[in-house]
Amino acid sequence: MGEVIVITSGKGGVGKTTTVANIGTGLALMGKKVVLIDTDIGLRNLDVVLGLENRIVYDIVDVVEGFCRTKQALIKDKRFEGLFLLPAAQTRDKNAINPHQMIQLCNELREEYDYILIDCPAGIEQGFKNAIAGADRAIVVTTPEVSAVRDADRIIGLLEANELRNPKLLVNRVRMDMVKRGDMMSIDDIIDILAVDLLGVVPDDEKIVISTNRGEPAITDSKSVAGQAFRNIARRITGENVPLLDLEADAGFVHKLKKLLGLKTS
């Protein structure tokens, strides 16, 4: 029996789609059978981030309305064995699907796949309700900014109200150089405020933009720090105990120098 995990955030643009594409690819590379569902109806994105935009025939609305079988709508990623995408509909809106249909869809996919990752739209309305309906657990993505953490807090409350307890936090776009000089909230600060478990930390990395340009998830790039972070997160999702990345490699020059000289940098 597979597991359904929703990736959500409240605020838009914090990295949900990037996370789904990378973790999904990572799980497939670990030999798992994975379906990624884009529930951002009207604003589909996951297809282009994965580089699969030219292969779409049917979409999620076609599936729930019975125009095609689920299998027909799943796009098989030829690069990564075991990875499938169920794209969002682009010309419909969020009300084209209801939570009951999502639960049915998830239950069907659960029979055959190890992981079903759901890319949630921004907001707390219908799209959010659809995305979380069939989920067993939730990952909340945030960035170290006041507005994003505030929205994460609200989402955590809503998830718990919907019986999705103990959501795990992913802090994206962290810049250790800024944290070091006191211009960005640290992971500890954020965890402290939100009082949730940490799933992982992904540094801000220009390789994410480059990989998105190409439609090749950064997790396949061995030189990308964000890719390394996502590889660790994928392993944690399967239950492995992987220590946090040492993001200090990313720290500023002065910090590195101090470290070299053996000075305490706190």
Binding site: V146, D183, D189, I193
Partner: peptide
């Protein structure tokens, strides 16, 4: 970041 934390705590 301390300003951010203060503001965040209050708003939450």
């Amino acid at each position: 970041k301390d300003v951010a934390k203060e503001r965040l705590k209050l708003v939450l």
